[in-house]
Lab assay of single mutants.
Amino acid sequence: MATGGRRGAAAAPLLVAVAALLLGAAGHLYPGEVCPGMDIRNNLTRLHELENCSVIEGHLQILLMFKTRPEDFRDLSFPKLIMITDYLLLFRVYGLESLKDLFPNLTVIRGSRLFFNYALVIFEMVHLKELGLYNLMNITRGSVRIEKNNELCYLATIDWSRILDSVEDNYIVLNKDDNEECGDICPGTAKGKTNCPATVINGQFVERCWTHSHCQKVCPTICKSHGCTAEGLCCHSECLGNCSQPDDPTKCVACRNFYLDGRCVETCPPPYYHFQDWRCVNFSFCQDLHHKCKNSRRQGCHQYVIHNNKCIPECPSGYTMNSSNLLCTPCLGPCPKVCHLLEGEKTIDSVTSAQELRGCTVINGSLIINIRGGNNLAAELEANLGLIEEISGYLKIRRSYALVSLSFFRKLRLIRGETLEIGNYSFYALDNQNLRQLWDWSKHNLTITQGKLFFHYNPKLCLSEIHKMEEVSGTKGRQERNDIALKTNGDQASCENELLKFSYIRTSFDKI
């Protein structure tokens, strides 16, 4: 039985969820670079991206490699990797027998973001014989899940209580170790020597080791999670996991709180800001991140802002960003909400898709409305799209047979046209069989910064309504002859009103 693990408890099935942008060198404390989270699957090609990484700022997932063999891993080693800020997950990587050479110096898994409450997941690794993470000293947050690894031993010899604050939620089941077939031998045991430290858990006094050649490092209890030197002297209180010299914040392997210019500090002093819960960055760093993602459509890219001495992905609820200094300031009234469309555009074809934009005031991208039916549609669209004030790209209304009016965009005031449909149009209306009105132009103002209007096959939309939009939106004169079809717009509506004058002759039985 794995020490510190839980057996036999019912657990939810383990679901495996399925960018080499360097964020800056980590400095003297770390020998390499800070790398983003990685999802490495199918083959070993991307694994080489770990070569210079000291910190993975995010998670590391290595999974679904069915053609790899043990010899493929023999020359692979990433000794610079010290810390993973989120979680480490391995799933069905064939041929991998140990992690001792792959990650010989991995010391800390912070667990800032977890995989279903777990910071370390080893699942269905069919050839893994031992973990071998002999320098792993601290899992700051989260638990361990090690399950269905039929060859995995050296679990009962690990004292997880020396690595985690609590072992109650560890789930370590259905491994070879369960069948008591392992016969784990710690260093020196074969020669009758006791080389590794022994600890007591559940009444068992057991030597602690990761492999037959690597003991588990056990520091004096007084050192807590700070770690200790090879001689057993406690590291500085700002260290986490390990250090090369005692009581020196510049000799830590990793930091308990924050890293700044080669030393570990309790908090980031001005003019620095907390970033990702582990390091200090200056304003320029946060500003660069903001600008890199301002026009990016890459998933996970955030326009970072500053709030409460932190550089964070977005302002919290009730705050909006001051564009001059990136500071989050309290909103006066309802907060603006910028919604970034991942692929640059979004099609609204149902109430469900409209709900995804609920509360958005600025759309960074283009909207395509293609709704053919739905219950209580006008009210639903207004509830979900009615706060949109600005669209950076274009607005396209296409084959939306259920629409009679666009009044559900009740606050839309600006279409920038930074991206144009077919390279020309910022407003595009095609084949809307029941569209009769755009907006009530006596109450609604709309500016279209650039781009043209396109109207074709809107049989109940009168040309007068379209011409009014040209005047109000500032697009009059931009359109070419064929942009607004004269014969297919309003051709099934009563669009022309003329005053009919009647004269009559009164007659009676005795007068003409």
Rank of each mutant, 00 (worst) to 15 (best):
H28A: 06
H28K: 05
L29W: 11
Y30T: 07
E33A: 15
V34S: 04
P36M: 06
G37Q: 10
G37R: 04
T45M: 08
T45K: 11
E49A: 07
N52I: 02
C53I: 03
C53W: 00
C53F: 00
V55Q: 04
I56V: 06
I56R: 08
G58A: 00
H59G: 11
L60I: 04
Q61P: 00
L63Q: 08
F66P: 14
T68Q: 14
R69V: 08
D75T: 06
L76T: 02
S77V: 07
S77Y: 14
F78A: 03
P79G: 05
K80R: 10
I82A: 08
T85V: 05
D86R: 02
Y87S: 01
Y87P: 04
Y87R: 00
L89I: 08
F91C: 01
E97P: 04
K100Y: 10
P104F: 01
P104L: 01
F116S: 12
N117V: 06
A119P: 01
F123A: 02
L128K: 01
E130N: 09
L136Y: 01
M137Q: 14
M137T: 10
R141T: 04
R145H: 15
R145P: 02
N149A: 12
L155G: 14
T157V: 06
I158E: 04
D159N: 12
S161L: 12
R162L: 13
L164R: 05
D165S: 09
D169R: 12
D169Y: 06
V173R: 13
L174V: 15
N175H: 15
N175Y: 05
K176L: 04
D178M: 15
E180V: 09
E181S: 08
C182V: 03
D184E: 05
D184T: 05
C186G: 10
C186V: 04
T189C: 10
A190H: 11
K191Y: 07
N195L: 11
C196N: 04
T199N: 10
V200A: 13
V200K: 03
N202P: 08
N202H: 09
G203W: 05
G203E: 15
R208K: 13
C209Q: 02
C209S: 03
C209N: 05
W210F: 15
T211Q: 02
H212F: 10
S213A: 04
H214P: 07
H214Y: 07
K217N: 15
V218F: 13
V218M: 06
V218A: 09
P220F: 02
P220S: 04
K224Y: 14
S225C: 07
S225H: 10
G227A: 07
C228L: 02
T229P: 09
E231K: 05
G232R: 03
C235S: 00
C235L: 01
H236V: 02
E238S: 08
L240S: 04
N242A: 11
N242E: 13
C243T: 00
P246F: 11
D247E: 03
D248P: 01
T250I: 04
T250Y: 03
K251N: 06
K251G: 15
K251M: 15
C252V: 00
R256T: 11
R256W: 02
N257I: 01
R263K: 01
P269I: 07
P269H: 00
Y273R: 02
H274G: 12
F275K: 01
R279T: 04
C280K: 01
C280Q: 01
F285D: 04
F285S: 03
Q287S: 15
H290P: 03
N295F: 10
S296P: 06
S296K: 09
R297D: 15
Q299W: 03
Q299E: 15
Y304A: 03
V305C: 08
H307P: 01
N308H: 12
N309A: 11
C311I: 02
P313L: 04
E314H: 03
E314A: 08
C315T: 00
T320F: 14
M321W: 14
N322E: 00
N322T: 07
S324P: 14
T329G: 11
L332T: 06
L332Q: 07
G333Y: 08
G333P: 02
G333F: 03
P334M: 14
